[in-house]
Simulated assay, not measured.
Amino acid sequence: MRMKKEALCMIWGALATIGVKLFGGWTPTLGVVLTLMGIDFLAGFIVAAVFKKSPKSETGAADSMSMFKGLCKKFGMIFVIAASHQIDIALGVDYIMIATTYGFIANEALSIVENAGLMGIVKSEVLINAIEVLKGKSSKTE
């Protein structure tokens, strides 16, 4: 049992080291974008599996290939964020990753609102305005 605990701690330590190297450490905006990615993925699954209104498949129902493509897109976004941090390092600046992250936050938030609309949930003007503010922040930092 102790061996398993040590192995698990070693794996978590290695992942944390990779995260620090790729993203320069944990930032609040990184946490927000990853959380929104998870919420969006689950909301998309609910739209397809429960409501059968997904625009990603012909029938509107859940489709494993569409889900796999969506997951690949999420990982691609994470790779772009990591690359933008590496560009920050190369140029000696600290705003490219932030601008990229704000852009993805706005994108994910908008996608969540769209999924909520497909579920029949009323779209909130307050939430849509908050997304517009995020888009504005992304444009200003670029």
Rank of each mutant, 00 (worst) to 15 (best):
L8A: 14
E114T: 05
K137Q: 09
K73I: 11
S66P: 03
S139N: 15
M1A: 14
F23M: 06
S54N: 03
F23S: 05
G60K: 03
L118E: 06
S64H: 08
V133R: 05
I121A: 13
G136V: 10
T100A: 05
N115G: 12
I105H: 01
E114P: 01
S54C: 02
K4V: 13
M37H: 01
K123D: 08
A48K: 00
G13D: 06
N129D: 12
L8R: 11
F75C: 12
F41T: 13
T29C: 10
A61S: 07
L110W: 12
I121Y: 10
K5C: 05
G120S: 02
K74Q: 10
I112C: 06
M1P: 12
A130T: 09
L91C: 12
L118W: 07
M67E: 14
S64Q: 09
K52I: 03
K56H: 04
K5P: 01
L30Y: 05
V80M: 14
G120M: 03
M97P: 00
G136M: 08
S84K: 02
G31F: 05
A48C: 01
V133F: 04
K140L: 09
A99S: 03
T100Y: 00
F104W: 04
C72Y: 13
L8I: 12
E114F: 05
E6C: 12
M97R: 09
T141W: 09
E132I: 10
V133D: 04
L34F: 14
I89F: 09
I11H: 07
I89T: 15
F23A: 02
V113I: 15
Q86F: 10
G76T: 02
T101W: 00
S124I: 00
M119Y: 04
F45W: 14
G19S: 04
C9S: 15
I131D: 00
F51S: 04
G92L: 02
V126K: 11
A109W: 05
V133P: 04
A48S: 04
I87V: 11
A83S: 08
Y95M: 06
G136L: 11
L30S: 04
L42Y: 12
M65H: 08
G19Y: 09
L134W: 01
I96N: 02
Y102F: 13
F79S: 15
G70H: 00
P55H: 01
K69Y: 10
V93I: 10
D40M: 07
D88K: 06
F68W: 11
K53W: 01
V47L: 01
E125C: 07
M65F: 13
L22W: 06
A62C: 06
L42V: 15
L30C: 06
F79N: 14
S138W: 04
M77K: 12
I121T: 12
K74V: 10
F68Q: 14
L34S: 14
M119A: 10
F51Y: 09
L8M: 08
A83Y: 09
D63W: 05
Q86I: 06
G117E: 05
G31Y: 07
V20M: 12
C9M: 15
M37L: 08
F104Q: 00
L71N: 03
A61P: 04
D40F: 04
F23Q: 05
S64Y: 06
N129E: 10
I46C: 03
A99E: 00
A48R: 01
